[in-house]
Design a binder for these strands. Structure first.
Length: 457
RNA sequence: GCGAAUAUGGUGAAGUGGUUAACACGCCAGAUUGUGGCUCUGGUAUGCGUGGGUUCGAUCCCCACUAUUCGCCCCA
């Protein structure tokens, strides 16, 4: 049997409906924030990622899918979204021909050659935003609030937002040196992995799980002590704006990120629902003020995040959140014998063109099986065709919930369906309104025809 | 890159060194003379991951490989 590549998944059935729903919510949320959708290639010149993410980062050194194309060019399947988008920003001179700051969002697959486990795939889907061209701390805070709002909108409860600052480049390198100085005499007391981190990226020793309880780590110098005034002020501002946006966060001075391009604000959003594996970061991001320049563009600040959709759906499942997905059909057309089949085909088509979700029988099974099939598909109404009725220009229709059955003149069918199915349409609209946070609704809105749960209406 | 567990039909899952490998769900059909979802009966299944070895004989024992799952590293 031919099987899918390791770490990749086929998504279909109910699972696919969840993905479609989440994607729909993303698009609708981004529209409200006025971010515009961007699609960049799934592979880029290797240089984009090697320069962008840092030659020494783990993702680049051992997790990329690299290949040489037929023109002998070195290519890499994108392991993340930011570098490619920044390349596009520069190549298309967005700094000159779009309103500043440029606000972009993406939603697509990324590829990392890793050993798969719970919450970690080789092909993963990430949704993310990049806000390029603003250095204002407000943009940091708003970018953090976007995934938080998305998660809340979808109904997720158990999340935790962690933030930290790495400071500007000067603060960051001062801190790095201080850390190395501090850890050097204790090297032998640290775990093997940490010994390696000491040379590669000493910041990462801080979030070591093995040594996390040792005094050495507890007493290690903290980023905040090595920030210059400007970096410190900026971090304070970010926190203020987060409060204004009502984002609950905690400062984690040991939070550092794996990619080289980050400076100043970094953040992670974790899932804390029972049963989630150790890969519980749903989304993460930060500021990358040097990246545009590093990739050959004008010196331009930027901030963004990425959020894994697979992990998000895993969290929704674990919190038992039922998404309002349509898993039914409005009308199932069945027929007693083959002689009605032609009419079934005609009717199915015409009802579909009139806007109904219609299913019919394809395999020529007996009536009993067709009823079963209708149940499996959650059909709301059944149309049962037989020659005798058709001769009289009549049709039998049965409400599959109440089991009421009636015979209608063909001319009245559309009126009837419009009437009985209208209620359900309202239901769906209402559910979508429901997804809006109650806090978003104030008295003013409630006076209109806006449907909401506002208590005082 | 390192470590652990697992591998039996569409699904779940028993089981044995020896003729046709349980059972359940599912699916199809009949009882029901063209209106089902209950019940009963019958039917249906490309199945012991792959390759070696031990043996008269292996799905079962041994070895290797592969795949899956989980963990470490790292990351969304």
């Amino acid at each position: 049997m031919i099987t899918k590549p390791k770490g990749c998944y086929d998504i279909y059935g109910v699972e696919a409906k969840k993905w479609q729903y989440v994607n729909k919510m993303i698009d609708s949320l981004m529209e409200k924030y006025n971010y515009s959708y961007i699609r960049t290639p799934i592979f880029e010149s290797s240089e984009v990622f090697h320069r962008g993410m840092g030659e020494s980062s783990d993702v680049v050194t051992k997790e990329t899918y690299d290949f040489i194309d037929r023109g002998n060019r070195s290519m890499t399947l994108r392991p993340e979204g930011t570098a490619g988008i920044v390349r596009s920003y520069i190549e298309n001179k967005m700094y000159g021909n779009m309103p500043n700051p440029v606000k972009l969002y993406y939603n697509g697959t990324m590829y990392r050659y890793e050993r798969p486990q719970s919450g970690r795939d080789r092909e993963l889907t990430q949704f993310g935003v990049e806000l390029i061209g603003s250095d204002d701390p407000f943009s940091d805070a708003e970018v953090i609030s976007i995934p938080v709002n998305l998660y809340k909108m979808l109904g997720l409860r158990e999340i935790k937002v962690k933030i930290n600052t790495l400071g500007d480049n000067e603060s960051r390198s001062r801190y790095r040196e201080a850390l190395m100085e501090y850890f050097r005499p204790h090297l032998n007391e640290l775990c093997d992995d940490c010994k390696e981190r000491f040379n590669k990226n000493p910041l990462r020793i801080l979030d070591c799980k093995v040594d996390k309880d040792s005094d050495i780590l507890k007493n290690a110098p903290v980023t905040l002590d090595y920030l210059n005034e400007e970096s410190k002020n900026r971090f304070e501002k970010v926190k203020e704006y987060l409060e204004a946006l009502e984002v609950d966060y905690e400062v984690d001075p040991k939070l550092v990120r794996g990619l080289d391009y980050y400076n100043h604000t970094v953040f992670e959003i974790e899932a804390h629902v029972e049963g989630f594996g150790s890969n519980n970061v749903l989304g993460a991001g930060g500021r990358y003020n040097g990246l545009v320049e590093l990739l050959g563009g004008p010196s331009t600040p930027g901030v963004g995040f990425a959020s894994g959709i697979g992990r998000l759906i895993m969290a929704l499942d674990l919190e038992n959140i039922e998404l309002p997905i349509k898993d039914d059909v409005e009308i199932f057309i069945m027929y007693v014998s083959d002689t009605e089949k032609n009419y079934a085909a005609t009717l199915a088509q015409s009802l579909r063109m009139s806007g109904f979700r219609v299913e019919t029988e394809y395999t020529g099974r007996g009536l009993k099986s067709q009823f079963k099939q209708a149940d499996r598909l959650n059909a709301k109404f059944l149309i049962i065709l037989n020659d005798e009725d058709l001769k009289n220009n009549e049709i039998k229709i049965k409400n599959n919930k109440t089991k009421e059955e009636l015979t209608l003149g063909l001319d009245y069918l559309l009126y009837y369906l419009d009437e009985v199915l209208l209620e359900d349409d309202i239901d769906v609209e209402y559910k979508e309104e429901e997804m809006i946070e109650e806090d978003d609704c104030d008295e003013y809105h409630c006076e209109g025809d806006h449907q909401c749960h506002h208590k005082g209406e």
